[in-house]
Nucleic acid binder design. Structure first.
Lengths: 137, 137
DNA sequence: AATTAATCTATTAAAACTATAGGGTAAACA
DNA sequence: TGTTTACCCTATAGTTTTAATAGATTAATT
């Protein structure tokens, strides 16, 4: 299951990406428009800022704004920051690899074999979708 | 993340599928061979029995055995029973559909749009893999 | 300089889910 | 009738998720 954190994060990013002007947008506006609990959204936007997706401006007229062109943001990077590993099992993860405690030999593990295929197919979907792709009709 | 329940369940099923004879196999043997906590495995095998994948026999010489040919068991059915919905969001689930609370219009939701693609690609992987495919070298 | 509108930080709490353990019951077999 | 094995119910420690609360900090505007 996708966490609400990730769901809300993607919604916020696409809302920002679909703005005509790239002026800062207030948290409250995003929260209202996308039906997201404001304080929860606040912490999500913060991690998106700390990981280089968003810039922020404090004080009157402040808010959040995208730092890059939506077409330059593949969903692989978004998902990894918000949700964590894309792989369903650590032993097939590219960025978060870990060996299984059980399982003496990965190459003979049927779960490994299956989840490798799942990882590859999901990865391809995320790679083929940028923020720009998601907001285009 | 794949739950251990699902991971252990798949391992148990493939262990049973790879037996040369289709005599009943004891829980303890599966647990030992696949490094699965026995009591946990017990409950997993029970749900696999109640959902029609396994048969069981009590008493001496008892144990669990596959009811169908491994080639007739696609992973879609296994995953749905052990892990639940394949979709990452209920609003794109085929068998467990639910509308989102937020989100007035699914067709305009970027998360929906992305997760539809993920569901389809994962589904294809599971459909293309039966138990028999997993145990073949 | 005062005010106000924002973002930032930290704590914590409820709820749900996960992974397991314990102990007793029932059936099959020898 | 005794042994072996699956079956069933209950409890629980731990983790993760999803927030809510309260306040501190920053910066533009007046």
């Amino acid at each position: 299951m996708l966490s609400k954190k990730t769901k809300y994060g993607i919604k916020a990013l696409t809302y920002l990406a679909s703005q005509s002007k790239q002026d800062p947008v207030q948290i409250s506006e995003i929260a209202r428009h996308e039906n997201i609990p404001q304080k929860f959204l606040e912490s999500i936007l913060l991690t998106l800022r700390n990981t280089g997706f968003l810039g922020s401006k404090k004080g009157k007229g402040g808010g959040y704004y995208l730092l890059k062109d939506p077409g330059e943001i593949p969903m692989t990077t978004v998902i990894r920051v918000l949700e964590g590993p894309i792989a369903m099992v650590p032993c097939v993860s590219l960025n978060f690899y870990e060996k299984c405690d059980d399982c003496p030999d990965e190459n003979k593990c049927t779960v490994h074999k299956l989840m490798l295929q799942v990882r590859d197919s999901v990865l391809e979907v995320y790679r083929n979708n940028t923020l720009a792709d998601l907001i285009s009709a």
